[in-house]
Amino acid sequence: MNPETNDGRTSKQQALMSEEADCLSRIARERDEDAFSRLYDLQSPLLFGLACRILARKDEAEEVLQEIMLKVWHEADRYDAARGSARAWRVMMTRSRCLDRLRRRSTALRREPPAPENLDQTPDDSVMAVEEMTRAEERAAVRQALNSLPEAQRRALEAAFFEGLTHAEIAAKTGDPLGTVKTRVRLGMMKLAELLKAYT
């Protein structure tokens, strides 16, 4: 077990976040390619996995990852630490870009969200060991937090995050009243924020 700091993060998690922030800063200040390379290694598995999950197409996921990393390279100086972590910045940027692509696909071609069994649930063995261990803790924490939510809340959150559905669209999909869906998402997010406080 890693020793926990005052805010609940393990020292490894803190070191990792600090290293990411440092890489971003070096890219912004010095156009440091080594820092970019390191940041890519640290972040690309998470971002690529996210893109694959949303788009369900590897070729498009690669394009999105390339766009996002180039954006990081060119616009690292626009990152404002006061508004959130570097990880959240890139994750939400990736999600947003993926959802844009998803919406551009014609309605007829829009896929149903893949069933969990269709996804490769086995992490790549080659993901770097140290970071993977640290990320595995976070991933486990997120999944534990999600699993602790009522099923309906968890499904609503996943539909919103991975499919980009609005409250109304989730309601239409599940057949539940709009107010119920809003309450589920609200309660789910509040609970999640509370459970993951140590990682935010």
Binding site: F48, R87, E132, R139, R143, L146
Partner: peptide
């Protein structure tokens, strides 16, 4: 507005499986 909420939303990305790009 809450930073914790935004960060928690971003952490949902971990619900996806990490993959190494080519």
């Amino acid at each position: 507005p809450s930073r914790e909420l935004d960060e928690a939303a971003a952490l949902l990305a971990y619900a996806a499986v990490e993959r190494n790009p080519p």
